[in-house]
């Protein structure tokens, strides 16, 4: 129990500074501005929980330069925390089941990511695999994941939805960091620059994906699934 209390006590740089806290708030504001949202509504008392869950997930992401925290999240837990605002809204507003199709590319992207890494551990997304098929699966999975985000968390003044979109995008950024770290650029550039470059690429993809037609998103997700299948067969 003392280990647990000690770990929570030492987690304050993650919660206050990076990747949560101030840095998450600034990144959310910046992302919202880039997506054309001018003002973000502050959370009301009864909707504070909607903001806390995605913010908590962002605080625990295994981003480079973040202080170590022994109790990391895995993909299903992080996904549940991040899509909580959308999930609660879909439940209370009783969205029709067919509106859930926007989540399909995210699930297929998740299949590709977990097939390429053979783990749900988010830290696994930062390890660049040796086999070309798994490399392609990881990148296709990240692409399918990122292009799904604009439909799941559309540009909105709701702070919880902005954090939800940011967190999902950051998960998609992890394989990009792994890919950039495997290039010769990693020998000369510091870790923060690699991470910043990956975030810039992911942000560009996210903004561009909002203009992609539906069939292109589904096609990319389908390719990620096929690639995951090939990678799974090769790993056997």
């Amino acid at each position: 129990m003392s280990d647990l209390l000690g770990a929570i006590g030492q987690a304050w740089p993650r919660l206050l500074c990076y990747p949560g806290g101030v840095s998450a708030a600034l990144a959310a504001l910046l992302l919202a501005r880039l997506r054309g949202v001018r003002l973000i509504d502050p959370p009301s008392a009864n909707r504070l929980i909607d903001l806390i869950l995605p913010l908590g997930a962002i605080s625990l992401l295994p981003l480079p330069l973040a202080t170590t925290f022994p109790y990391s999240l895995d993909l299903p837990t992080a996904l549940t925390l991040l899509i909580w605002p959308g999930l609660r809204r879909a439940a209370t507003e009783r969205h029709s089941a067919h509106q859930l199709s926007v989540y399909l590319p995210l699930v297929l992207g998740g299949i590709a990511l977990s097939s390429a890494t053979a783990t749900f551990d988010l830290g696994g997304l930062l390890r660049w695999p040796a086999e070309p098929t798994r490399q392609a699966t990881l990148l296709l999975g990240a692409a399918a994941w990122i292009v799904a985000v604009p439909r799941i968390a559309p540009p909105s003044p709701d702070a919880a939805m902005v954090c939800s979109g940011l967190g999902l995008m950051l998960i998609g950024t992890l394989p990009l960091i792994a890919a950039l770290n495997a290039t010769p650029l990693a020998d000369s550039a510091p870790a923060w620059l690699i991470a910043a470059l990956a975030v810039c690429i992911a942000t560009g993809a996210l903004i561009g994906a909002g203009r992609l037609p539906e069939w292109a998103v589904q096609l990319l997700a389908g390719l990620a699934l096929v690639s995951a299948g090939v990678a799974a067969v090769e790993m056997r």
Binding site: L15, L48, I52, G56, L73, T77, D121
Partner: peptide, 24 residues
């Protein structure tokens, strides 16, 4: 291959919730 930090996550969420409440 997978982790479910129930109590650890609850502890962190309480801290984040308290911070967000104070800020609000």
């Amino acid at each position: 291959t997978a982790t479910a930090p129930g109590l650890a996550l609850l502890g962190l969420m309480i801290v984040i919730g308290a911070l967000a409440w104070v800020l609000s």
